[in-house]
Design a binder for these strands. Structure first.
Lengths: 108, 108
DNA sequence: TTCAACTATCTTGTCAAGCAAGGAAGTGTC
DNA sequence: GACACTTCCTTGCTTGACAAGATAGTTGAA
């Protein structure tokens, strides 16, 4: 699995986070693993936290701290708010357009 | 045609430029139009010039000034160099991975 | 004849976001 | 006692798209 250049990830990661939280609530450590598993390459974990804080501050997601079931440090679970749902829809439209534009060039 | 958020374009535009120049030599003004036509949204023309200069300085493309056939200002035609061809191949692999990762999340 | 629209190139400063590097702390294993 | 894993978080750096603006030639309309 190749490590993607950071510039290419810009903007995409925010949408990816919303996408993950749309299907289930999750916490940063798990989200990070989900991104790597999905194929985004090795994302720095220092990337995830500021992004989540930004989304929380802007009212798109909400966090809640809960004890870990396996005795580890407590986790901060995030879930999507309506505003985040709308932002996700926007992102999906943006992404679809970018994807289409890229394929347009490649197919020529 | 929606204007894509600038952050989402980061990295993608560089690949798009290489892609365009891979199929035919071109000059900035035409490249800009090609991007808009392909569906990348309204790209600022101030974005194209620094990008091309960077690619030229790094030896991926080469420019050559020629008179415009329609009597307008002279154009600077760029064509792809071998190093640019290789960079394009890299970009394509990166893009394919990102696309796959995104679809992976969406399909869940 | 002047004014807008189009073609064409280029520079400077700003801003957003991913990353590297680091810190903190608990649990379990060898 | 050391290492690996889980879990959270911050600071400063760098990159690249953009806004704004400068320059200049051609053409067609008012």
């Amino acid at each position: 699995m190749r490590k993607l250049p950071s510039q290419l990830l810009k903007g995409s990661l925010e949408g990816a986070l919303l996408q993950i939280l749309a299907s289930q609530e999750s916490y940063p450590y798990e989200i990070h693993q989900a991104l790597v598993t999905a194929g985004f390459g090795e994302i720095a974990d220092g990337t995830i936290y500021p992004l989540l804080l930004k989304l929380e501050r802007s009212g798109q997601i909400q966090g809640e701290r809960r004890d870990s079931p396996n005795g580890g440090p407590p986790r901060k679970y995030y879930h999507l708010l309506p505003s985040g749902q709308a932002a996700l829809a926007d992102f999906k439209a943006d992404w679809a357009q970018l994807e289409a534009a890229m394929n347009q060039l490649g197919g020529k």
